[in-house]
């Protein structure tokens, strides 16, 4: 399978503290990788660094995405290249309507790929189709981005945006946190439908339950800024049963 993402010996700081300490990871097209690990191990930092959050500083290592140096790109270029982060805490943006926002995002990423802006009819059709995918209420598209959305609506809105932008590499940062069983099922089903042999997904989660719906190919355990174990989906079940202690005790 074609390699999509290649992280080598990645070190990253936030506010002067080193969080990632030599992380390496390879993701191929068509794969789903789960990244698990106790709190504070660096899972969200990895997600933030990959999408270019300016609060994180990479001090060492490299990230190659489809053969290109990802770390050299601005966040909007990364999005243009097909990278997408489903935020753990989606930001509320008062005054910016969902529809205008997603239309601009779609057209800007299309422009990056050398495509014409989408026609008004096609846009509305696409909106309707993707909204239904995550069962997002129609009225939300007339509201400001995430403003006054419930926790579940925010997470579904992230997956809705993912569906609209059709990324090549999606990173779901604790998309399951704060979701009830129904919302979890909807979100997972949405992600599942978007899977193809040409894209890949990194699922960051604490819990097995999301992985019941989104079957990973590989499960990694991240601890103290490094991946300490990688195995098949059975690892997630084992972690669910036994916790992390048996794994991390050698690294403390």
């Amino acid at each position: 399978m074609a390699n999509l993402l290649n992280i080598e010996n990645l070190h990253a700081n936030v506010e002067g503290n080193e969080i990632l300490k030599g992380l390496s990871l390879k993701v191929n097209k068509g794969e789903v990788h789960a990244i698990m690990g106790p709190n504070g191990s660096g899972k969200s930092t990895l997600a933030s660094v990959l999408v270019g959050n300016p609060n994180y500083e990479v001090t060492e290592g490299s990230v190659t995405y489809e053969g290109k140096d990802l770390l050299e790109m601005d966040p909007e270029e990364r999005a243009g290249e097909g990278l997408f982060l489903s935020f753990q805490y989606p930001v509320e943006i008062p005054g910016v309507s969902m529809t205008n926002f997603i239309r601009l995002a779609l057209n800007e990423t299309r422009k990056y790929k050398g495509l014409e802006p989408i026609s008004a009819t096609d846009f509305l059709k696409l909106m309707k189709e993707k909204r239904e995918l995550v069962e997002l209420d129609k009225s939300l598209s007339n509201r400001s981005v995430n403003e006054g959305f419930s926790g579940g609506e925010k997470k579904r809105n992230e997956i809705f945006q993912m569906a609209m932008l059709n990324p090549t590499l999606s990173i779901l940062d604790e998309t399951d946190s704060g979701l009830d069983i129904d919302a979890l099922r909807i979100v997972a089903a949405g992600v599942q439908k978007l899977r193809s042999k040409d894209n890949a997904t990194i699922v960051i989660t604490h819990y097995q339950r999301l992985l019941d719906h989104i079957k990973p190919d590989v499960v990694h355990v991240l601890y103290k800024g490094r991946i300490i174990k990688s195995a098949g989906p059975e690892l997630a079940l084992e972690l669910e049963e036994r916790g992390y202690d048996w794994l991390i005790k050698d690294f403390d």
């Binding site: 601005d74 997408f84 982060l85 943006i93 910016v96």
Partner: peptide, 24 residues
């Protein structure tokens, strides 16, 4: 800054993101 980054992470360039937030 968080809103700015959110917009940029969706492919909206810095200047357009600024404009959008100022407009809002």
């Amino acid at each position: 800054e968080d809103a700015l980054f959110y917009l940029r992470s969706r492919g909206i360039g810095k200047q357009k993101a600024y404009d959008m937030l100022m407009q809002a």
